[in-house]
Amino acid sequence: MTVLHLEVLVEEYSAKVALDNLLPKILPSDVEFELHSFQGKSDLLKKLPQRLKGYRSWLPDDWRIVVLCDRDNDDCQDLKKSLEDYAILSGFTTKSSTSSQQFTVLNRIAIEELEAWFLGDATAICQAYPKIAKSFATQQRYRYPDAIKGGTWEALETLLKGKGYHQGGLNKVEAARTISEYMQPQNNQSPSFQCFNAGIQAFFRE
C-alpha cells in the first residue's frame, strides 16, 4: 500500500511550526501531510483516545498517523506504553506492536523536549543565529542533546541569550521556525530525532 498522506499530532504550536519546515525534507515529494497542534502535552494525551477513535471510522487506507510529544520528566517507557495503548485500543497497528512492515500509527517522543532536536543540528543553529560559534556543540553541556540536564529549552535559551538573541526570554515558536528552516535531517545528532526520522521512513518501506 502506497502511503500518500500523514496526519501528524503534536503537543504545541512550536512543534507544528518546526515540522512544517522539516517534514518536506523527510517525506517523498508526492506525500502530503497535515499538522494538528494541541494546547500542551496534557491536552494532547487527554484528547488522543477520542481523536484516534474518530480516525478509525474514516481514515483512508493510504493515510497514516504520527503522534509526537515531549518526554519532559516522564518515564519514557511509561509514556510510550500509554501512546501505544491508545492506538491499539482504537483498533490501529503501531510500528512497535507489529512485526509486519505495514502499520498505521507511529508514536514518537522527543527527549527530553523538542529543543533537543534543534541543538542536535549545530550548523542550523549557527546559520539561524550567526553570532553563535559552531564550536558550542563540543561543550560538555551541548555535546549530547538528548542527555542535557535541566531542560533543553532552557539550554537553548542560555545559548541564544549569551549572544544577544531572545533577550526577553526564548520565543519557542520563533526559534522553532528559524532553526528548522536550516535543519538537515540526516545530520542531526539527537538520537530521538533520528528515531523519529527512521520511523517516518519506515512508512515507505511497505
Rank of each mutant, 00 (worst) to 15 (best):
A137I: 11
K161E: 13
L106N: 00
A122T: 04
P24T: 08
A128F: 03
L68P: 05
G150D: 03
A155R: 00
G168N: 13
L35W: 06
E32P: 02
K16I: 13
S14T: 06
K80A: 09
V66E: 01
Y13D: 13
A198W: 08
R141G: 06
A18Q: 06
T2E: 14
T98P: 03
I125N: 03
K47Q: 15
A176W: 00
L45E: 13
T123Q: 06
L9Y: 15
R143N: 12
F92D: 00
V17Y: 02
G91M: 05
A133Y: 08
T93Q: 04
W63M: 07
E206T: 13
F204M: 10
E112C: 11
A176S: 15
Q102N: 13
F204D: 12
E113N: 04
P60L: 07
I179M: 03
D30T: 04
W153E: 13
P49L: 04
T152G: 05
S14A: 14
S180P: 10
Q77M: 10
L68A: 09
T104C: 09
L119G: 07
K149G: 07
T104W: 01
F204C: 14
V105I: 09
Q77W: 05
V67R: 00
Q184H: 12
S100D: 10
Q102E: 12
G162Q: 04
A116W: 02
T123D: 11
E181C: 08
L170Y: 08
L45D: 07
L68N: 00
Q102F: 11
V8R: 03
L35V: 12
Q201E: 14
E181I: 07
K46A: 15
I111W: 01
E157S: 15
L160S: 07
V105M: 00
V66G: 03
L68C: 14
L68H: 01
A147R: 09
L22N: 06
P191S: 09
G169M: 08
A175Y: 01
E206W: 08
L119Q: 02
Y86R: 02
L68W: 01
Q139K: 14
V67M: 03
Q186S: 15
K172A: 12
G164M: 02
Y129I: 05
L4D: 11
A15W: 06
D85E: 13
E7Y: 11
V10W: 02
L4P: 00
E206C: 14
Q184M: 14
N73F: 10
L9D: 04
A110G: 10
W63P: 02
I132R: 00
V10I: 10
D30P: 00
L83H: 02
R108F: 05
E115S: 07
Q201S: 15
V105F: 04
L159W: 05
E206D: 09
E113V: 07
D74G: 05
Q101V: 08
L119D: 05
K172I: 12
P191M: 11
I179A: 06
A202C: 12
Q184A: 14
H5V: 08
N188I: 14
E84V: 10
I200D: 10
K53I: 04
S42T: 13
E12Q: 07
E7Q: 13
Q167F: 05
K161L: 06
D62I: 01
R177M: 12
I111E: 11
L59M: 11
L160C: 07
N73Q: 11
T152L: 03
L68G: 08
T178G: 01
Q50N: 09
R177Y: 09
A137Q: 13
F196K: 01
T93I: 01
I88E: 09
Q194T: 13
G54R: 00
T158M: 06
